[in-house]
Simulated assay, not measured.
Amino acid sequence: MTVAGLLLAAGEGRRIGRPKALVDLGGRLLVERGLATLTVGGCTPVHVVLGAAHDDVLAAADLAGATVVHNRDWRTGLASSLRTGLASLPPDVEAVVVALVDQPLVTPEAIRRLRQAYDEGAVAAVATYDGLPRNPVLLARTTWADVAAQASGDTGARAYLRANPDVTTPVPCDDVGAPDDVDTPEQLTTLRRRLLAQSRP
Rank of each mutant, 00 (worst) to 15 (best):
V46Q: 12
T44A: 15
V97W: 08
P45G: 02
L29P: 04
G5F: 04
L132C: 00
A163H: 08
A163M: 06
V167M: 04
W144S: 05
V3G: 02
L139R: 03
G156R: 07
P136V: 10
V147G: 04
R162N: 11
G121A: 12
I111N: 04
A87L: 08
T39F: 06
D146S: 15
R194M: 09
D166K: 13
E32K: 14
V23P: 05
Q116F: 01
D119N: 02
R113H: 07
G131H: 14
A59V: 00
V49Y: 04
A125W: 12
L78N: 11
A66W: 01
Q103E: 15
R134K: 14
L63I: 12
W144N: 10
T142M: 06
V46G: 03
P179F: 01
D102L: 07
E12H: 14
S80Y: 01
R134G: 09
V48Q: 01
G27N: 05
G5W: 03
D154P: 10
G153W: 12
P165E: 05
A159E: 11
P185Y: 08
V171I: 07
T190F: 03
V101M: 02
L38T: 10
V182N: 05
L22H: 06
L78C: 00
P45M: 05
L161G: 06
A61N: 13
A127P: 02
H70F: 08
G65S: 03
G27M: 10
G26T: 12
R14E: 14
C173N: 01
Y118V: 15
W144K: 12
R75M: 10
R162T: 07
V182P: 08
L188F: 05
H54T: 13
L22W: 09
L114N: 09
A64Q: 09
Y118N: 07
A125G: 07
D183V: 07
A59K: 14
T76W: 11
V97N: 06
S88A: 15
A163S: 14
P45N: 09
A149N: 04
A36H: 12
Y118H: 15
V40F: 00
T107K: 07
E12W: 08
A52T: 09
N71R: 01
V48F: 05
L114R: 12
I16R: 08
L63V: 11
S88G: 05
A110H: 01
L161E: 02
G42F: 04
L29A: 09
H54M: 04
L86G: 03
W144L: 08
D55T: 13
T169N: 01
T67W: 00
T76Q: 14
L8W: 02
V167Q: 10
E12P: 11
D175N: 05
V171N: 04
T39E: 06
A9W: 03
V98Q: 01
Y118A: 15
R134F: 13
A148K: 05
A178E: 14
L50K: 04
L188W: 07
V31L: 09
D175H: 13
A36S: 14
L161W: 06
R141A: 12
